[in-house]
């Protein structure tokens, strides 16, 4: 009852700016699964707060690309210091908004598949996009993207919306990498198999776990969660012979960050052993530091060929490619 009253009062006072607390607050916008109780958020919060004498406040938004949209909408008045959860596909678009500033930290990654040095965007983990399937329900998954596209229509897959989620965008770029100018036709062939297009990664993945789809657009590292955290060997990522599209997730600090010093400190913290040690077994992605790779990751598929567009390419073509997908999806 007390809690209810407190909440009611909170509602009434909602418009008031957040009460100033004794400690400075570092606000980080990120996607939902990052802050869930089994995600990296809580551990990282504890670890960072132990070093900084501050409050770390994660604000979770419903999808990854939504983070960028949100800071764009808020503009200069945004309360965020850092956004965490964009990827290299979006860096050129994000840079153009003029909302971010260089982080001033030297990147020292020894476990990235490509050399990546960017004054504004700091990589914090990476992985390969892959379709995950349930071995007990599907004995032999498609061996290539082409096999998936041309599979029978009773195969049910679930993907994310490329306008809202980085895995969705990643898959769009994967299709583009493999099919190039024929992507529209490939999308049309794939369409009947898509059960639904979700807003965020977690929506799609939980649909898959509930049995609403046979395969879900996710990461090659996702099965490690089931093996390590659940001790279940049922799930696997399908290895596609054309190669896989790669994702490097990045963080960036805002130009108008209310706590620039803390934000800089956090950007450096991202590369440190604590953050990197937490990531693999909570966010289920590869760390950027080789020393942080856990044991269970050995058995995962490793594609021989990896695709990655430059941020500039994505910036120049995203609209056209999304439109291409939309028109293929609507007829």
């Amino acid at each position: 009852m007390k809690q209810l009253l407190a909440s009611l009062t909170a509602a009434a006072l909602l418009a008031m700016p957040t009460m100033a607390s004794a400690k400075p607050v570092l606000t980080i916008y990120t996607y939902e699964s990052f802050t869930s109780e089994w995600g990296p958020g809580p551990q990282i919060e504890t670890a960072f707060e132990a070093t900084c004498d501050c409050d770390l406040n994660f604000v979770s938004l419903d999808s990854s690309i939504g983070i960028l949209g949100r800071v764009q909408l808020e503009g200069a008045s945004s309360q965020a210091d850092i956004v965490l959860g964009l990827d290299t596909n979006l860096t050129a678009i994000a840079r153009d908004t003029g909302l971010f500033q260089p982080h001033g930290v030297t990147a020292q990654s020894d476990n990235l598949p490509i050399a990546y040095d960017n004054d504004m965007f700091m990589p914090f983990d990476w992985g390969y996009f892959a379709f995950v399937y349930d071995k007990t329900r599907m004995a032999t998954p498609p061996a290539s993207l082409q096999a998936l596209v041309e599979a029978d229509d009773d195969l049910r897959i679930v993907i994310q919306d490329p306008r809202t989620a980085t895995p969705g965008l990643g898959f769009l770029l994967w299709m583009k990498s493999v099919y190039g100018d024929d992507a529209a036709d490939a999308w049309r062939a794939l369409n009947p198999k898509i059960v639904t297009v979700t807003k965020g990664w977690w929506d799609a993945y939980s649909l898959f776990l509930e049995g609403e789809a046979d395969m879900v657009m996710s990461y090659s590292t996702s099965p490690a969660y089931h093996q390590i955290a659940e001790g279940v060997d049922q799930y696997a990522a399908a290895s596609f012979s054309e190669g896989h599209y790669m994702q490097i997730e990045v963080a960036a600090m805002l130009k108008n960050a209310p706590q620039p010093e803390l934000a800089k400190k956090f950007m450096a913290f991202i590369q440190g052993p604590e953050f990197q040690g937490i990531i693999p077994t909570t966010n289920w992605m590869y760390p950027t530091q080789a020393s942080a790779i856990p044991d269970g990751f050995d058995g995962l598929i490793t594609p021989e060929n990896a695709y990655l567009f430059s941020g500039e390419d994505v910036k120049n073509n995203k609209q056209a490619w999304v439109d291409e997908w939309l028109s293929a999806a609507t007829n």
């Binding site: 909408l73 919306d161 297009v197």
Partner: peptide
């Protein structure tokens, strides 16, 4: 998915994403 939408939903997508 994107095949079934309304202008309201598109306004939301245009603005939010």
């Amino acid at each position: 998915g994107p095949a079934i939408t309304t202008m309201e939903v598109s306004i939301y997508t245009a603005l939010r994403f």
